[in-house]
């Protein structure tokens, strides 16, 4: 099939960008979106032009590297998929496809479609862990039984791949779903409970400092999240934050 691509071109963080138009022919429906971008880049390189920079790595939907805003949606059309798992058969012959980077003050563009998501790392560093030493000298793994329901729910929250689609999608660039998923995972498990009060406060503080927007409960994040993480996590974090602040000493 033939498609027209309008792709964001931006030399560097402090430069202005603009959409650039490219026609593609003989696109196979079996190609993933990134493979289509590979072909585009191959054409550009052979034509003596600069290829588009974009982040990608595992290409099986788990590393969270790929991050394209396609036709007005994070990771493009289709639910519960990342860009690397989006296939060209999701588009029509002759379609014009807009490809943009994640846009958020907290995710500055590095080049073209590649953005800096280290804000997420800093949020995890602010408290997204259990303070346990790695000596292995802990209690036996089965010493504390965890109700299957809690373990499953914690797992669902833990499936976040840190891609940033929630931020990209949210009209306010809010990172609440990302932060809430980690807060939830650790507060649902007995291992994470002892420091859950400090954790939620520190992580929310860091989130605010990074310049993400506020949550206005539009629910767009859970729709576009490639792992289908629910906004009930956000409610849980709101609850945890309130009770932590009210009961802090």
């Amino acid at each position: 099939m033939n498609i027209t691509l309008k792709v964001w071109r931006q030399k560097g963080p402090n430069q202005l960008g603009a959409m650039e138009t490219h026609k593609m022919t003989e696109v196979s429906g079996d190609m993933s979106f990134l493979e289509m971008m590979d072909v585009l880049n191959d054409n550009l390189i052979r034509g003596g032009k600069e290829p588009f920079a974009f982040d990608h790595d595992c290409r099986e939907g788990i590393c969270g590297s790929c991050s394209m805003f396609i036709n007005g949606e994070a990771h493009g059309p289709g639910r519960n998929v990342t860009t690397c798992q989006l296939h060209m058969r999701s588009f029509k012959d002759g379609e014009t496809i807009h490809v943009e980077p994640w846009r958020s003050a907290a995710f500055p563009v590095i080049k073209d479609l590649s953005v800096d998501r280290s804000a997420f790392d800093r949020i995890i560093q602010s408290g997204g862990y259990v303070s346990v030493n790695t000596s292995g000298a802990t209690i036996d793994a089965n010493a504390i039984p965890i109700p299957k329901h809690d373990a499953d729910e914690a797992f669902d929250s833990a499936t976040c791949i840190g891609c940033g689609a929630c931020v990209a999608t949210c009209k306010n660039s809010s990172a609440m779903l990302f932060v809430a998923a980690k807060v939830s995972q650790l507060s649902l498990l007995p291992q994470g409970k002892p420091e859950s009060k400090e954790r939620v406060i520190r992580m929310v503080d860091q989130m605010d400092l990074e310049g993400f927007g506020n949550c206005t409960n539009t629910g767009a994040c859970e729709v576009e999240c490639p792992k289908g993480i629910s906004i009930t996590n956000i409610a849980r974090m709101n609850r945890e934050f309130l009770s932590s602040n009210l009961t802090s000493k």
Binding site: T134, S135, T138, I139
Partner: peptide, 25 residues
């Protein structure tokens, strides 16, 4: 020899391994 400690360590870190209904791994 150290394989068992890995599981202990990971559980302590909050890795959500699959569990049975009784709450054990």
């Amino acid at each position: 020899e150290v394989s068992g400690s890995i599981i202990d360590q990971c559980v302590a870190q909050g890795v959500p391994f699959a569990r049975e209904y009784g709450g054990l791994l």
